[in-house]
Design a protein around this nucleic acid. Structure first.
Ligand SMILES: [Zn+2]
Ligand SMILES: [Zn+2]
Ligand SMILES: [Zn+2]
Ligand SMILES: [Zn+2]
Lengths: 156, 156
DNA sequence: GAGAATTAGGTTATAATGTTGCAATTCTAC
DNA sequence: GTAGAATTGCAACATTATAACCTAATTCTC
């Protein structure tokens, strides 16, 4: 929602990094320079970013830049819930409200490319509803929507 | 649901092929031998199937077997809604109720590997709810759940 | 039916995405 | 400081998907 409208994005980045540091301290894991830089790069905008897009950017910053480096950093960030993977795009995006594991859910605008996280509470409720109806036990879920965001709907 | 329990699966396959023929006639497109065989192979069980798994099976049947052949057939079947793509698995699975375009939604059991399509009406309702709440216009959606199915929950 | 237009398939090569295995280094805890 | 764990560097490789270009089959138009 907010992510789909113009805003001070530097604030998004700063907040994301700060939260990441907090989360890492709480969980007793290390936000090393590569991991931190990968997180910043994923947060450079609200568009899902491919792993291979990060390689040259990391290289430009003097970091090692080979697929395993990037994937290890991404796996780490996924593991502790700082980013999500958008599997329909083979891409990654920063999590808006890290701190606890929660279902992956995004709306992605096909016009501007921005993505916004879906309200976790509703996802949770829907997942619970389906568990009931289908008699299954859900362990993880991912909901990916595409279409036009509020801004792009009103463009010429 | 039914797909997750033992059943006469030959019936599933026959039904799927019959429906496919109907859909293709209605839409004025051709269910060629390769396309038909790929559909049968996708329906050989209720587990999502990777494109490259199909190659040797097609070859065994005397069909041409190169990636473009399989991907073209899969693209065709996706296009007219006879199969779905499970992007978290890079795999494909037959559609339970083809005939109209509808959102992709599956529950995949992490123990037995079987997948069952989610109730389309509920997916539709949830998508509409999110459109309202977020002020966006949804064009396509995909919901992928994993966990334990009713059968596997009760195993030792 | 002949010829043009469209659609489908064959073939080769290559792009894009993601992983494995192992050695070298850095960090942590005692 | 030293042992063990975690992290990184590096090279090769595996998997998934597409591009480009051409031939064959089918349908359309006359
Ligand atoms: Zn922002
Ligand atoms: Zn999130
Ligand atoms: Zn069946
Ligand atoms: Zn379906």
């Amino acid at each position: 929602m907010a992510n789909l409208h113009p805003h001070n994005h530097d604030h998004c980045i700063r907040t994301a990094i700060q939260r990441a540091q907090t989360v890492c301290e709480q969980q007793g894991v290390r936000l090393t320079p590569v991991r931190r830089r990968v997180l910043e790069l994923v947060w450079q905008n609200h568009k899902p970013t491919g792993a291979y897009e990060l390689l040259p950017q990391l290289a430009a910053d003097g970091f090692n830049s080979a697929p395993p480096t990037v994937y290890r950093a991404l796996d780490f960030l996924l593991e502790i819930g700082l980013i999500h993977r958008i599997s329909s795009l083979n891409a990654f995006i920063g999590c808006d409200h890290p701190g606890g594991q929660h279902p992956t859910g995004f709306f992605i605008c096909t016009d501007c490319g921005n993505a916004a996280e879906l309200p976790a509470a509703r996802l949770q409720a829907f997942s619970a509803e389906l568990e009931q109806v289908m008699g299954v036990q859900v362990a993880s879920s991912s909901y990916e929507l595409t279409g036009l965001c509020g801004v792009c709907r009103l463009k010429p």
